[in-house]
């Protein structure tokens, strides 16, 4: 069976003022269809850069990536038709209403005006924004913007949905709502590739995770596999948390990551 995402030796090098910067250094990824895959890492580890390469928003320095069966570098249009993207800090046009934004997004995916209007209505109901649908996005709360961003990423019924830190900056209640949305989307068969700094979020939502640090993947597996591997390796007398796995994988102490990594509890 074709993987939903298959990346081999993915690399991204930027030309910085003080020379070349290797943001992503040979990342291999294989995400199965229908999976919720978590991509974790501290700030600046290369999570967003990887997502931007996989979603055709950024050129790949070397290596290959196929998403929904298409090569992202040589078949960007085919790839874009099959993916949904909600990037960090919901990028929305604040001057439009929620409905206008969704209709526009649907039309950009080739739908007729009527189909786009129907699709927008269905999505507004899906994310519970019907009452606010005809209000300017400018007046939406952070949680509403995030839900609208999610809805806009779903207009084309994507095979693979990329969510880059979908709950960053949200209050706990809004965060739980987004988690519910992600589960519902995944239950419809959509593969979800999720980056997050919140380890509890990865534990709750993801079938498998990979931890990236310094542009390279340092751990991968299911949350329970990673925890039990750490328990055995360090001969711990208690079940480690995903935080412990993260700290061990990234070589950080709790003091060092204070502020970088946050937790929430459902």
């Amino acid at each position: 069976m074709t993987a939903a995402i298959l990346a081999e030796q993915l690399m991204k090098t930027y030309r910085g003022r003080s020379g070349d910067v290797e943001a992503v250094r040979g990342v291999d990824l294989e995400v199965a269809k229908g999976e919720v895959f978590g991509f974790l890492g501290p700030n600046g580890a290369g999570k967003s850069t990887t997502v931007r390469m996989l979603t055709t928003l950024m050129t790949i320095t070397s290596g290959t990536a196929r998403v929904a069966g298409f090569d992202v570098a040589s078949q960007p249009h085919e790839t874009r038709r099959r993916i949904g993207v909600a990037l960090q800090e919901a990028g929305l046009d604040a001057r439009q209403t929620g409905r206008e934004l969704l209709v526009l997004q649907a039309r950009l995916f080739g739908m007729s005006r009527t189909d786009a209007t129907d699709r927008a209505q269905a999505l507004l109901e899906w994310v519970d924004l019907t009452e606010a649908a005809d209000r300017s996005v400018k007046g939406y709360s952070g949680g509403m913007k995030r839900r609208l961003d999610l809805a806009s990423a779903l207009v084309n019924e994507p095979e693979v949905l990329f969510l880059d830190e979908p709950t960053t900056g949200l209050d706990p209640a809004s965060r739980l709502t987004v988690w519910d949305e992600v589960r519902r989307i995944n239950n419809l068969g959509t593969t979800v590739f999720l980056t997050t700094q919140y380890l509890e979020e990865a534990d709750q939502l993801c079938d498998r995770i990979a931890i990236i640090d310094g542009g390279a993947i340092v751990r991968r597996g299911t949350p329970s596999e990673l925890k039990s591997e750490l328990r055995q390796r360090l001969q711990l007398d208690h079940e480690p948390t995903l935080d412990d796995v993260f700290l061990d994988a990234t070589g950080r102490s709790r003091q060092r990551v204070a502020g970088d990594v946050q937790e929430i509890h459902a």
Binding site: R80, R81, L87, Q88, G91, L92, A94, L108
Partner: peptide, 16 residues
């Protein structure tokens, strides 16, 4: 403004 706010990337991710 859209580049800074991220909506430009949202548009770039569509098949247009």
């Amino acid at each position: 403004e859209e580049v800074e706010g991220g909506y430009f990337d949202k548009l770039r991710a569509t098949p247009i």
